[in-house]
Amino acid sequence: MSLEYYLVLSALLFTIGVIGVLIRRNAIIIFMCIELMLNAANLAFVAISRSLGEATGQVFVFFVMTVAAAEVAIGLAIIVSVFKHRQTVNVDEVNSLKG
């Protein structure tokens, strides 16, 4: 399998993530779509790492995963806090800072 197929798949997954962020209003699903995009990037990293024959790409996947884990912990805590105050996870309803 050549590199292009993996990169195309990665691009498609990333796009689905982007579309998800655009069309869904549920904060948790938006968050999942962000995870999807990070994963698409990881796929590209690993594919390129394989075709270059060196491990650097996989090391970066490791970093991406660490950041993703931290981000999920914080993000979900924020969502829980917001839900406790406003009883909603709809991102359009959380707009009291809007001018």
């Binding site: 968050f31 999942m32 394989r50 490791f62 993703a68 884990a69 999920v72 979900l76």
Partner: peptide, 25 residues
């Protein structure tokens, strides 16, 4: 792609921890 370590970590971190957190919330 021959990246066995990354595959295992993918399952441990994403499927085993991050998604459990999502379900929890």
């Amino acid at each position: 792609l021959g990246a066995h370590f990354v595959a295992a970590v993918q399952v441990i971190v994403y499927a085993g921890a991050i998604m459990v957190l999502f379900l929890f919330v």
